[in-house]
């Protein structure tokens, strides 16, 4: 069995992991493959991500190198017997549990104490009262967008009223409906105010969708029969892409919308130029 005891495999493991790590770092740095540019107030997510990335990266390199080194170093030798180490004494058992405890503690610390719990609570907690409201409704394979209009209230919706003319089934007998601004599926743009909290109310007409704005670190499933919610503050002016992150059928891969962040005044001006629902539906 001498061919099974060569150093060849250990060398190959070492070579593969060292070269692989260097090549990965080089390729990633050269292409700038990283999180998309942050454009919202969710910088805590990035902070936790980077922390875990560093810890996991170090652990990855250390353990893969240790593994490769062991494979290289301890390749069988006819003259040497393996070191008998059953791991039954108390000291050995302690040694076997310790690394696990350490790993978990490091992870817990990075996840929870860097503000993981608090940002999770914030995202799912009550948004500020003066927040800018937008409703986004998914359907195969486009998004409808609705703004509440000057009264700041969305009109009632009833799925029974949904028709080609009234894609969201807005109940026009409700006073709050008349000034709503509605963009039927695929025809709207998400205009959001800069530096102002935005509440996204998320609905779906048919199957599960999931609006995902990578630059904002925002993702929340649109569940039929429910209204889900998320809120954030856009921090950079510009145009962003909104994608669907939950498989919704054959057009899933291009169920997109445009997100435009502008100062509040411009958003208000743009909104005032749109035709309210009361003047469209007949």
């Amino acid at each position: 069995m001498s061919q099974n005891q060569s150093k060849f495999h250990g060398l190959l493991f070492l070579f593969f992991f060292i070269l692989g790590s260097i090549a990965s770092v080089w390729v990633v740095l050269r292409n700038g493959w990283w999180l998309p540019e942050l454009a919202s107030d969710r910088e805590t997510i990035d902070k936790i991500f980077v922390t875990i990335f560093i810890i996991a990266g170090i652990l990855f390199v250390l353990s893969e190198l240790a593994l490769s080194y062991f494979i290289f170093k301890y390749a069988g030798d006819a003259r040497r017997k393996a070191f008998y180490l059953p791991g039954t004494t108390k000291k050995e058992i302690l040694w076997s549990i310790l690394p696990g405890v350490l790993v978990v503690m490091i992870l817990e610390i990075s996840a929870e104490f860097l503000g993981g719990a608090s940002i999770w609570g914030k995202i799912h907690g009550e948004p500020p009262k003066d927040a800018f409201l937008v409703e986004i409704t998914g359907e195969q394979f486009a998004w409808s967008i609705r703004y509440p209009g000057p009264d700041g209230k969305f009109g009632k919706v009833d799925p029974k009223l949904i028709s080609y003319d009234n894609p969201l089934g807005i109940d026009m007998s409700d006073e709050a409906s008349k000034d709503d601004i509605v963009f039927p599926a695929g025809e709207g743009v998400l205009y959001l105010p800069l530096n102002h909290p935005v509440v996204l109310l998320i609905r779906s007409k048919d199957v599960i969708h999931s609006p995902f704005i990578p630059n904002f670190r925002v993702k929340q499933d649109a569940v039929p029969g429910m209204v889900t919610r998320t809120w954030f503050v856009p921090k950079k002016e510009g145009e962003y892409e909104l994608a669907c992150a939950e498989l919704c059928g054959l057009g899933h891969y291009r169920m997109k919308s445009l997100v435009v962040v502008k100062p509040m005044e411009e958003v208000q001006e743009w909104l005032s130029q749109q035709t309210p629902a009361g003047d469209i539906y007949w």
């Binding site: 069995m1 099974n4 005891q5 060569s6 495999h9 353990s63 240790a66 593994l67 062991f70 494979i71 301890y74 390749a75 069988g76 030798d77 040497r80 017997k81 393996a82 070191f83 180490l85 791991g87 040694w95 076997s96 549990i97 690394p99 696990g100 405890v101 790993v103 978990v104 992870l107 817990e108 996840a111």
Partner: peptide, 26 residues
């Protein structure tokens, strides 16, 4: 996060099993 605890122990024990062994590369 708790499940990473037994998982980490298991993998570490495997690494120690390899350590100072007389490896046979089948």
């Amino acid at each position: 996060l708790a499940i990473s605890f037994p998982t980490a122990i298991l993998i570490f024990n495997y690494l120690v099993t390899v350590w100072r062994g007389s490896l046979r590369f089948t």
